[in-house]
Amino acid sequence: MSQDIYVVIEHLREQVADISYVMLAAARESAQNTGGKVVAVLLGHNAKGLAGNFAADQVLYLDHSALADFNPDAYQKALTDLIGKNQPRTVLFGSTSIGADLASVLSIRLNLPLVNSCRSLSKDGKFVSQICGGKIMAEGELPAPTALVAMIPGGYKVEQGQSKQSPPVTQVDVPVLESLRVTLAKYIEPAAGDVDIAKEQILVSVGRGIQNKDNIALAEDLAKALGGVVTASRPVIDQGWLVASRLVGKSGKHVKPKIYLTLGISGAPEHVEAITDSEAIIAINTDPKAPIFDIAKYGVEMDMFDLIEVLTEKVKEAKGR
């Protein structure tokens, strides 16, 4: 049993994911309560070099050919062994496509408590989770003896988890990783979109509030008048109303336009994490309590259908002048 805070580093194809640094920053804050070390846990194959800028006291490195790419089965086995042996105070995972395949499974396998959707850890040993699409926060004492925690972004800056000084790396033994039930066949690259939305300066982004596929044309008209393109939140893409290359959010693209104009987007955390680098977010929504208004620079509480066409005309007029 130790007071250390472990951070399970997420990386894919030689790129460390931003959530890893967010977790290292959270671990630093939490370590002030426990008095333990911040330990980055890096699983991979010939991947030691990724640890260079981790703001950690120590890196535990597990090297195995079965860990070369993310494999839930292999990662679970390796982490079961490590956490079981070392019993740290806390283990942080990303609430992501990688971490979500691990934390819940390990909670049952190791019989350890799990906190999900955690946004921040405090110096006094508490967690704060964000649930219900960002509308509710839940706070509690970090459970014992070892708390597994799945973190969402938003509570810490990436830079807080980075350091100019390389932490010491200790290579640790990896258990036998055989008879894996999941194997990677191949990666499928994202389909080249008509436009790269990450590079666009003006985005008109539609959410569930757009109601149907036909209404997308209204947003297209506005975007065209502004010289921008239309993007969308997840429900719109899942309905097949827009192509996947226009998806802004956790599984889609992170964007950083000058103007991010949202139409009927409530501001669920999965969407918000991908738009915070926008210069100005302008939100149009009928729900005055929509979380999008908390991160937008300007807000309009109005039915988008009362506004879009009028706005498109005004933009055209302004351009014509």
Binding site: I108, L112, I136, A138, E139, D294, Y298
Partner: peptide
């Protein structure tokens, strides 16, 4: 295995959008 929640609250954002009001014409 589930954590004990001590308190739930609605988030108080440190910032809020500057709201633009008026009819559609004014807002546009």
């Amino acid at each position: 295995g589930a954590p004990i929640i001590g308190r739930m609250f609605q988030p108080e954002a440190s910032t809020h959008a500057t709201m633009i009001t008026g009819n559609a014409d004014d807002v546009a």
